[in-house]
Design a protein around this nucleic acid. Structure first.
Lengths: 336, 336
DNA sequence: TTGTATGCGTTATCAG
DNA sequence: CTGATAACGCATACAA
């Protein structure tokens, strides 16, 4: 079932069918009618590969995700779902490419094989080799998160430095004098993962500004690590009365550790940070936090990418989002 | 940068390059060497669209997911990550197609446009129209979850009826006489969502077998609904002492409701069901539950699909998994 | 308003 | 062992 078959049955040439479909050339209403009837009857759809080959574009995007082995966090999964939805609005399909582990085969396949028109990169490092790879290949791309080099790419990100900074100020206003940052894992920090680096920057800057005693701790992306991390914090720095975090995956463990320690939140201990909306609300008590606007970021990323595909030489654009901090119930005045 | 360019630089014909790449025809080591050098130097990769057109296959699978608007549950997300990983092992890419809402455009694009070699369908209804669509299109597919009609497709599923049945027996053994099933949403039940239907079947059968008083409640996939649902249960059936559930998304709300009611688990109230491993362990206390083996199911699904693509006329195969119930701390003897 | 002819980059058939 | 060359199905420049 191809375009020739349709043409034959409608008694026209193949090009006429093609033009009737694309609308790039006027077609008399009579023949258009005939063609459409045949198409409807046979349920014809142009072959995507043939169209891609002829047209030079695939109408497909690639979303590069962290390797599946590493559990995706809620925020990351939010991106995946939202990117797919945003792409669908442009009638674009989304190819999922795990990358970051040893096997970047999928990534290479997609990039070198001209399998997609553009790429959305998430969970990037401050100096990510894949960015260089995409530039070299001249494939349009947008990053969720940004590399340090200004103007290096189009991107959308959350202003972690600023948001964490605000969180610290919020705690200082409540009278806290001794705070800790619960960051992502050692490995990510060592690899130069943007949010981890920038959170630290914002945290330390605000603490210094307000004259607070500040500690930082790394914590793997899982509940058990959260529990261990908090117990470690309590034993090393017993005077800490508040924590700021960007580590969602550790939250359940943190919850458990607080319960074990018999600490009331926010009575005895305050918690805040940058956390996906849903997780913040599921915490007990609900977390005062800056909510990562995953849907908005995904929409912006797709829009930027579509723009970039249309005009690859246009200057890069970007968006640094600063969602407000939603006051819930996990922060309160220090009373120790 | 195409195969002709490589051929020219290596001083051979295009077909020789093609065969050197595919190995489908012997090539002298000398020319093979020359070709490989040129390829390595220029970083050449065959154009995926052209190859798909010529070869008649895309080396791509489609994973059909519920519409992004509806939040994906943890189990569903586990499938997505695991399917991508399993597909990568076969050097297959995966295209994500949201479907189920009004806009099945993505699904139709993929199916009719011969965009993929096969489809994995998840979250299917007991009589799912998409199954018929795929059969009509003669596109190989595998479902996660199964339609009622036997032999209708290759599939992999968890034996909800049996597992929920065992959960009830477990509760009965502990002395519980009055139990409730917290199911998925009204809409899903009404639409004929398999796990929801089969859980009910297994639940009622076991309850009857053991002479228990049994109630069932539907609950939307979100924490708030879980809270409301549990409060409703307590007011309507105050004698209930144990719940069985397959609704993961409602768990945080359930947790909160128990706390509000001042109920100790498992002292005052027991909970069990079929729940993703991670969620069961994050509950407080950890849930006695049958863990949905998402990775295994995904791997099986991909393997079945690859088989099916290779031999579309082979009889359907399927796998009905019965993971064991892991005893944790959320079930205990009735003592009221 | 429509038809003809060519190209997109590979694979695979048929000759050598 | 290797080279031409015809598909694959569509889009589009060129003619009419």
């Amino acid at each position: 079932m191809n375009i020739g078959e349709i043409a034959k049955r409608a008694g026209v040439s193949r090009s006429t069918v093609s033009y009737a479909l694309s609308g790039k050339r006027p077609v008399s209403t009579a023949t258009a009618q005939r063609i459409n009837n045949v198409i409807a009857e046979l349920g014809y759809r142009p072959n995507a590969s043939a169209r891609a080959l002829a047209e030079g574009r695939t109408r497909t995007l690639s979303l590069v995700i962290p390797p599946a082995s590493r559990r995706l966090t809620d925020v990351q999964l939010g991106f995946v779902a939202s990117v797919v939805e945003a792409a669908a609005k442009h009638d674009l399909d989304v190819l999922l490419s795990p990358s970051g582990g040893d096997h970047d085969r999928s990534f290479e396949r997609v990039v070198t094989g001209r399998r997609v028109d553009g790429v959305i990169l998430m969970e990037i490092l401050v100096d990510d080799p894949r960015v260089a790879r995409l530039e070299q290949e001249a494939l349009p791309f947008v990053t969720i998160g940004h590399v340090e080099r200004p103007g290096a790419s189009s991107w959308v990100d959350v202003d972690y430095a600023e948001l964490i900074n605000r969180c610290v100020h919020h705690l200082a206003d409540l009278g806290h004098r001794n705070v800790v940052l619960i960051n992502r894992s050692d490995e990510l920090v060592a690899a130069g993962y943007g949010p981890a680096m920038r959170s630290t920057t914002g945290f330390l800057a605000a603490a210094e500004q307000r004259g607070l005693t500040a500690h930082t701790a790394c914590c793997a992306d899982e509940p058990a690590a959260g529990l261990a991390c908090f117990e470690d914090i309590r034993s090393r720095w017993p005077d800490v009365t508040a924590a700021v975090t960007i580590n969602e995956a550790a939250l359940p463990g943190l919850q458990r550790a607080l319960r074990h320690a018999g600490l009331d939140v926010p009575g005895d201990f305050s918690i805040t940070g940058v956390i996906a909306n849903r997780l913040a609300e599921d915490f007990h008590p609900p977390l005062t936090a800056a909510d990562v606007p995953a849907e908005e970021m995904a929409r912006l990323a797709v829009d930027l990418l579509v723009e970039r595909i249309a005009d690859p030489d246009a200057p890069h654009r970007n968006a640094l989002l600063q969602p407000g901090i939603t006051l819930r119930s996990s922060t309160g005045a220090r009373h120790r």
